[in-house]
Design a protein around this nucleic acid. Sequence first.
DNA 1: CAATTAAGATTACATTTGTAAACGAAAGGG
DNA 2: CCCTTTCGTTTACAAATGTAATCTTAATTG
Lengths: 148, 148
Amino acid sequence: MATTELAVTISDAEWRVMRIVWTLGQADSRTIIDLLEQQHDWKAPTIKTLIGRLVKKGALGTTKNGRQFIYTPLIKEQAAMDGALLNELDQMCAMHRGTSLVHVLEQTELSKTDVQNLIDCLTQKLPSAPTMVDCDCLPDGCEGSCDV
Amino acid sequence: MATTELAVTISDAEWRVMRIVWTLGQADSRTIIDLLEQQHDWKAPTIKTLIGRLVKKGALGTTKNGRQFIYTPLIKEQAAMDGALLNELDQMCAMHRGTSLVHVLEQTELSKTDVQNLIDCLTQKLPSAPTMVDCDCLPDGCEGSCDV
DNA sequence: CAATTAAGATTACATTTGTAAACGAAAGGG
DNA sequence: CCCTTTCGTTTACAAATGTAATCTTAATTG
């Protein structure tokens, strides 16, 4: 792996904009603004600001189309999702990640295919899974007696 | 459910402090500062600020112990973890959450017990799982042709 | 062609966050 | 009892974020 991916950070509000563009594949500002004004009570200038920031961040690319722009995603939705979740998980105690994932799965609606894929993935991990994952909250490692 | 939980928001840096207190069960500022100065190159005042903010936010409670304080977690670690992950997931396209979770599980070290719990949870969900989960990125719902 | 509209750019401003210095009071050492 | 260390509090300040008004310019319309 040579490419040092700078991993664009997308804020919550910006995420809304990206979802529109990801879903449509591409969109001009009018479309983005119309759709988002429906979903939130954001004013048009707010949405313009978000679009502008996303372009500056390199999350959206632009193609001139007459007087306006067509925006396209420069980062993949799935990659952004994976990255955001892994980032979040990474900052949490390693020992408790598993339990948290159980809770997350319990509360997330998943298709049969997803569930099956998850089971397959886990079944494959099972043999090589360690007996326990240590807490990594303290410089040395804690004694597993974390108060949860 | 009557209690309207305001769901304290913990920032990344604050999360580090909470992990120390969660792991130790309780701690005075000296302990927190010593441990965090080892893990990061934060100055003591920085850590004091974070502690102060967490107390103000209601994430840490204080008990006077002579001239200093003993800090205790007022929110549960597991609940905070679950909440943070679910929040993150919630802002993403419902249709792609499953795939993302597969990726997350693949890249997360899990104990045998965790893996087994996850499999059990999923096995239980399988029968009632819908054939597909629709995209919820557009006001109406997209046509599933999202460009991932 | 003038007036209005719409698109993108510039500016604005409060809040949160990361990061830290400075300060005031209390406690302990000598 | 004074000096120093240590706590907790106050203040500081830049960057990111949420939220939006204003401005400039080009295009549309009568």
